[in-house]
Amino acid sequence: MSTTIASTEHDTQGGHGASHDDHPAFLQHHFVNADQQFDAAKMGMWLFLITEILLFSGMFVAYTVYRAWHPEVFLEASTLLDWKLGGLNTLVLLASSLTVALSIHYIQKGNQAALFWNLLITILLACVFLVVKYFEYMAKFEHGIFAGEGFDPHGVSHGVDYAKYNIPYAKQFFSIYFIMTGIHGFHVIVGIILMTWLLVKARLGHFSAAWYTPVELTGLYWHIVDIIWIFLFPLMYLI
């Protein structure tokens, strides 16, 4: 409890005594002190995150409206999605959320090696997520399940007759599914790029207990990506 703040300050002064004077190197000239800079950056990130939430809200509204209008079609169509793969991806993303939180935990304690490894695991988990998603998409495309005009379910696999899903408004379900998961997947890719950049900087020893703002902000971003999936999974795959 009481060690948290004290240890931060201690690490700062111990490990980076030379750079930590009135004006450390990372402090931009228009801020008074490092706390102001950190708080400002974090607040900016939170504001950005709610824009992300509202961006996805549009798709959730579209989903809700069409589901309310055609509940039986949405129920039927959702059985085509493989909840096992979706569930696996949920666990993968949750684990990546944990590792990104751990990476922040460790850099706050000044442990650069643990930061590096946790970031690496996070990136790998994100890649696993995308690979699973790729196979899911391919299995759908194979049977003519696309977003929009190309929607033309056909063929039989694993005892499922795809042709019987050619019902009105199933197209809307899969369009919303592909666009939502597609945009979510795009955010995962952006996250991977960001974290790869962090990984390089972490390797070079740029981060410390005194300055880890980019790790913190990317972590927040990654958790939001996770949260959106937390809602997508039951709505699309389960019910």
Partner: peptide
């Protein structure tokens, strides 16, 4: 120091 709370493992 709001931002610098370390969440325990």
């Amino acid at each position: 120091h709001h931002g610098h709370h370390i969440v325990p493992l």
